[in-house]
């Protein structure tokens, strides 16, 4: 029994996704007892959803040329006094990480900010994954708020969708089957990201609730644990598995999304190991029914050369 007293501020922080696990639990315990507070939380979330519905279209409008220009200039100016990122995005600099830490430490007082300094490569990786998650979240907002153009290609033929997106991304990817948790694939699209082309798969359940799975290239291959990010009313789980980065996005409570992330993770894991040995064979059974059922004879999905390289690395 926790004696933690829940405040009004906690309720807001809960809605906005700013609580740590312990306090979140305390708030949820409270909400389970207090219907009035639960209704408030739900209304606050609904307000956020409406705000997004009202204004997310701005994100799809091109910025005026002046704004673009200024953004470029600002980028240049800031890069000048930014003593971190551009340096370690260069591979040869990574090997000189230790030297660089020293330099940055002396030059910028950068390290003085925290007691423990993570390695630049780690910082870099974390940031770029964060950016990946942000991009995935933005893409979710863009395309779930637009009924007409929500997908670039439908999922009537999942095999065709997968090979289309695989070609765009430059490696074998696929939208996992989430049927067992009630979400069906409705389609996907390819999008530019900070680390090359990415693919967005969109799913919907019977209530019309939509989630997107964003698949892309991580900056470095090492796998990571699940990470969580909340942006307004949109929640995201993201991780790296194999040589691929994933972000699962949805407008729903963190715990609900976590359950789905787990299902995606399992599907991707089992799918990868199941599919790989079969890659060169003809008709894989069971879970790939739809693709073999559509009568397409295993056509080579567009023989783009570099793809085979990435594929090999993938396995």
């Amino acid at each position: 029994m926790s004696e933690y007293r829940v405040t009004d501020d906690d309720l807001h922080a809960y809605v906005d996704g700013h609580l740590d696990a312990g306090r979140r639990l305390a708030v949820e315990r409270w909400l389970a007892e207090d219907a009035e507070a639960a209704a408030r939380a739900e209304d606050y979330r609904a307000q956020a959803a409406l705000l997004h519905e009202m204004f997310d279209s701005v994100l799809n409008e091109p910025a005026p040329a002046e704004v673009e220009d200024l953004a470029q200039r600002l980028k240049g100016r800031l890069a000048g006094n930014d003593n971190a990122p551009p340096w370690y995005s260069r591979p040869w600099m990574r090997s000189a990480a230790a030297v660089m830490l020293l330099v940055t430490g002396v030059a910028g007082g950068y390290l003085g900010r925290g007691a423990v300094a993570p390695s630049p490569a780690l910082v870099e990786k974390g940031r770029s994954l964060q950016i990946f998650a942000e991009e995935a979240t933005q893409a979710h907002r863009f395309y779930t708020s637009d009924d007409r153009f929500q997908v670039e290609m439908g999922a009537d033929d999942p095999g065709a969708l997968d090979s289309f997106l695989s070609q765009r991304v430059g490696r074998d990817i696929y939208g996992p089957d989430l049927g067992r948790i009630g979400f069906r694939l409705i389609g996907g699209r390819s999008l530019p990201t900070d680390t090359g082309a990415g693919a967005q798969y969109m799913y919907a359940n019977d209530q019309g609730k939509r989630i997107t799975l964003f698949v892309g290239n991580p900056v470095s291959g090492a796998e990571t644990a699940f990470r969580f990010a909340q942006n307004g009313d949109v929640a995201a789980y993201y991780w790296v598995e194999g040589a691929t980065a994933y972000a699962l996005i949805g407008r729903m409570p963190k715990d609900e999304l976590q359950g789905i992330s787990k299902a995606v993770y399992d599907e991707v894991k089992s799918g990868r190991s199941k599919r790989q040995p079969q890659q060169e064979q003809q008709q894989p059974p069971a879970d790939t029914q739809q693709r073999s059922g559509d009568g397409q004879p295993q056509e080579q999905p567009n023989p783009v050369q570099p793809v085979s390289d990435t594929r090999n690395k993938d396995s």
Binding site: P86, S89, I131, D194
Partner: peptide, 13 residues
């Protein structure tokens, strides 16, 4: 390009 650039773009949006 650098991470910084795309971070900036997100913020400007």
């Amino acid at each position: 390009m650098n991470r910084f650039g795309s971070e900036l773009e997100v913020h400007i949006a």
